[in-house]
Design a protein around this nucleic acid. Structure first.
Lengths: 214, 214
DNA sequence: ACAAAATATTTAACCATACGGTTAAACCAA
DNA sequence: TTGGTTTAACCGTATGGTTAAATATTTTGT
């Protein structure tokens, strides 16, 4: 029978330090770019401790990605119910995701690399987390369709639009801003966001999804 | 004095084989996940040949990413001029990018990982390629604003929306379809795209950007 | 036209280091 | 003293990169 050496769902102090170090390192360098030695060094523990507390590199990564996605998957539903109309719910959904990304800056790089690799290292629990997030969106879009306020959209397309906008904008901005050689007129025409990223994405996605009768 | 061992801009037969193998390998496994030995093996040449023809891993990667982005950057402008109105131009722009991604399946994973890593391995030429693509979009949006058919949008936000939608949908779909455990009702509610990906993205982005007077 | 010399290209063998993972002993709290 | 926890040292392998020699290819002298 398989037994984890440690109960990961309620990690002790050492395990917590390791998981945090692992999360940051995986976020910065990706799965292949991260060495177990570096995680151990950043956590301030011996490499063998890391293997004792959690397990090998795969297990380490699976725990990180589930830890980071699980919270979001659990709380997205209740963040949405506050909205009365489908519009309000979709807006709340987008604001919640943008806020989650804001509060957890390690999420975007990990998610993007995971998608880029076709889910190569994606454990099933993490895939389930993602599925439950998308399911909430699907419910909102169906309700909007029934109540005749949303167009007949492709749900996964809307999902790609929301997540894609947030991730690319979030990760692309610092890259863009680092290009010192950009011509002055291009920089000058570069408008900043007036509100938050979530509000901007919500504004545009709602325009794209809503029926514009009247 | 520094001299490239080979003129990369006009690669010979061997160099071409190496670059193709490198592109595919980098696309599948990312920069860190790719070993120079594997590239050489896939190209059917000795590792030293690879170093002789092109250079070290960084140079190899830089050439791959520039080769893949350079073509797009060069041809996007002329793909857009056919459009008469800003709407037509924006539509042509999006269709062109979606088509480019279709024809070059190695581009999405490379781009996504590059953005995810904050442009860690992004050479300046590649950043310039990206900038020139975005500049075309900026021109379209400005023209639309002047002619009073587009809203006052944040250009980089629109860029993120277009690229993000295409990349996440393209790369996310196979991951989603591989989840055999998905509940039946979720699969049943999963609508397929009616047209091409580019057309769907164009439809939604145009709705998001266009002024809806009338 | 043709052999010889010069140059360009490819190769097997090699090197130092970094990697993921293990082991047995030391530490420490109950 | 027992059992959970941490550690230094170690192991086999893979990695990025180099070297000197072997093999094609082109240029040159006649």
């Amino acid at each position: 029978m398989f037994r984890r050496k440690i109960d990961i769902s309620n990690p002790g102090k050492t395990a917590q330090k390791i998981l945090t170090a692992a999360r940051k390192t995986f976020a910065r360098h990706g799965y292949s770019g991260t060495s177990v030695d570096e995680i151990a060094r950043r956590a301030g523990v011996n490499k063998a401790t890391l293997y004792y507390q959690i397990g090998d590199k795969d297990t380490l990564y699976a725990n990180v990605i589930h830890q980071v996605l699980g919270n979001i998957a659990q709380s997205v539903a209740q963040a949405v119910v506050k909205g009365k109309t489908p519009e309000e719910k979709l807006r709340a959904y987008i604001l919640f995701l943008a806020d989650a990304v804001d509060k957890n800056p390690d999420l975007p790089p990990i998610m993007m690399r995971e998608v880029a690799s076709g889910g190569a290292h994606l454990p099933q629990v993490a895939a389930q987390d993602m599925a439950s997030v998308i399911t909430v969106l699907l419910g909102i879009l169906e309700e909007g369709k029934e109540k005749n306020v949303f167009n007949d959209v492709v749900p996964f397309m809307v999902h790609a639009m929301i997540i894609g906008s947030i991730l690319i904008f979030k990760m692309g901005t610092p890259i863009k801003d680092r290009q010192m050689w950009l011509p002055e007129d291009l920089k000058a025409r570069d408008k900043k966001l007036s509100g938050t990223l979530g509000e901007e994405v919500a504004k545009m996605v709602l325009k794209a999804v809503k029926k514009n009768d009247r």
